[in-house]
Measured scan of single mutants.
Amino acid sequence: SQTQRTQDENEARRIAEEWKRRGYDVEVRNRNGHWEVTWD
């Protein structure tokens, strides 16, 4: 799996939607004030 971090929730949601469209299983988490998008 791969993880991308961002400070911006909207960006995190956009990234998550992009990977979901490509057929990946995606998880979005808030950790210590930043957002992590993990896909595999």
Rank of each mutant, 00 (worst) to 15 (best):
Y24D: 01
W19F: 11
E17V: 05
Q4S: 08
R14C: 09
I15E: 02
R31G: 05
T38S: 11
Q7T: 12
W19G: 04
V28D: 01
E27S: 12
E27W: 10
A16I: 04
E17C: 12
D8K: 04
V37E: 00
Q4W: 15
S1D: 08
T3W: 13
H34K: 09
E27K: 12
G23Y: 02
G23D: 01
Y24K: 03
R21M: 10
R5Y: 14
Q4Y: 15
R13P: 00
S1P: 14
K20E: 09
V37Y: 02
E18N: 07
R5F: 13
N30W: 15
E11Q: 07
N30L: 14
E9N: 02
S1H: 12
E36N: 03
E9K: 05
A16Q: 05
E18K: 09
A12Q: 02
A16W: 05
T38D: 04
R13L: 10
R21Y: 06
R29F: 12
A16H: 02
E36H: 04
Q2M: 13
R29K: 11
D8G: 06
A12I: 03
D8F: 08
Q7W: 11
K20A: 11
R22W: 07
G23R: 01
T6M: 09
T3A: 08
R5E: 08
Q2I: 12
N10M: 13
V28L: 07
N10W: 13
N10Q: 13
Y24Q: 02
E27V: 14
T6K: 03
R29I: 14
G23S: 02
S1E: 10
R14M: 09
T6I: 10
Y24L: 04
N30V: 12
Q7Y: 11
I15T: 04
D25L: 13
D25S: 13
V26R: 01
E18L: 11
K20I: 11
E11H: 07
W19T: 01
R31F: 13
D8H: 07
R29D: 04
A12G: 02
R31S: 10
R5S: 09
D8E: 06
E18G: 06
G23A: 01
R14F: 06
N30F: 15
D8R: 04
N10V: 11
G33R: 02
D40N: 14
E11P: 00
V26I: 04
W19R: 03
A12D: 00
G33E: 04
Q4T: 13
N32E: 09
G33F: 03
W19M: 14
R31W: 11
D25Q: 14
A16F: 05
W19S: 01
R5M: 12
D25T: 14
E17D: 11
I15A: 03
A12M: 04
E17I: 06
T3V: 13
T3P: 07
R14Q: 10
R31V: 15
E9W: 09
N10Y: 12
Q2W: 14
Y24E: 02
N30D: 08
W35V: 01
K20T: 09
R13D: 03
W35G: 00
E18Y: 15
A12W: 03
S1I: 13
G23F: 02
H34R: 08
T38K: 09
Q2K: 12
S1Q: 12
V28S: 01
D40K: 15
V37M: 02
E27M: 11
T6P: 04
E18D: 09
R5D: 05
D40Q: 15
D8A: 04
N32I: 04
D25G: 07
I15K: 04
R13F: 09
N32Q: 08
R21T: 09
T3E: 05
Q2D: 06
N30A: 09
S1K: 14
N30M: 14
E11Y: 07
T6R: 04
N32M: 07
D40M: 15
I15M: 08
W39H: 06
N32H: 08
T3Q: 07
E36G: 02
T6H: 07
R29P: 00
R31K: 11
I15H: 02
R29A: 10
E17P: 00
V28F: 04
W39K: 05
R14L: 09
T3H: 08
V28Y: 04
E27Q: 14
Q7A: 13
R31L: 13
T6A: 14
W39D: 01
Y24F: 11
E36P: 00
W19K: 06
D40W: 15
A16K: 04
Q4H: 15
W39A: 06
W35S: 00
R22V: 04
H34P: 01
T38Q: 08
R14N: 06
W19E: 01
R5W: 14
A12V: 03
R14I: 08
K20P: 00
A12L: 03
K20W: 10
Q4M: 15
V37D: 00
E9T: 02
V28I: 13
E18C: 15
W39V: 10
D8M: 05
E17G: 05
G33V: 02
A16N: 01
R31M: 14
R22H: 06
Y24V: 04
S1F: 14
R14Y: 06
Q2T: 12
R13G: 03
S1T: 12
A12T: 01
A16T: 03
D40P: 08
R31Q: 10
R31A: 10
E9P: 06
Q2G: 14
V26E: 00
Q7P: 10
T38H: 10
V28T: 03
V26N: 01
R5Q: 10
H34I: 15
T38Y: 12
T38P: 01
Q4P: 04
D40C: 15
I15F: 05
D40T: 15
R29M: 10
Q7E: 12
V26P: 03
R31C: 14
E36L: 08
W35C: 02
R14V: 07
Q2F: 15
I15R: 03
Q7F: 11
E11W: 07
V37G: 00
R22A: 08
R29T: 13
R29V: 14
E11S: 07
W39L: 07
R29Q: 10
V37N: 00
D8V: 03
V28G: 00
D40L: 14
N30I: 13
E17L: 09
D8L: 05
G23K: 01
E9Y: 12
R14K: 10
E27R: 10
Q7L: 12
A16D: 01
Q4R: 12
D40V: 15
R22P: 00
V37Q: 00
W35L: 01
H34F: 15
R31H: 12
A12E: 01
T38I: 13
R5N: 07
T3I: 12
K20L: 12
N32W: 06
V28K: 01
E18S: 07
E17H: 06
Q2P: 07
G23H: 03
Q2L: 10
Q4I: 15
V28P: 01
N10D: 13
R13S: 04
E36V: 10
W39Y: 08
Q7H: 12
E27I: 14
W35Y: 05
E18M: 13
R14S: 08
G33M: 03
T38F: 11
R14P: 00
R21D: 07
E18F: 15
E18P: 00
G23N: 02
V28M: 05
A12H: 01
R29Y: 11
D8Y: 07
R14T: 08
Q2N: 13
W39F: 08
E18A: 08
Q2S: 10
R14A: 10
K20G: 06
D25I: 14
T3K: 08
Q4K: 11
S1V: 12
D8P: 02
Q7R: 12
E9G: 04
E9R: 04
S1R: 13
R31N: 12
V26G: 01
W39Q: 03
Y24I: 05
E11R: 05
S1N: 10
V26W: 01
I15S: 02
Q4F: 15
R31T: 11
R21S: 12
D8T: 12
R21C: 14
R29L: 11
V26A: 08
E11M: 08
R13T: 05
T6F: 15
E17F: 08
Q2H: 14
G23I: 01
A12F: 02
T38R: 10
W35T: 01
E36A: 03
A16R: 03
G33P: 01
I15D: 01
W39R: 11
G23L: 02
G23W: 02
E18I: 11
D25Y: 14
R13K: 09
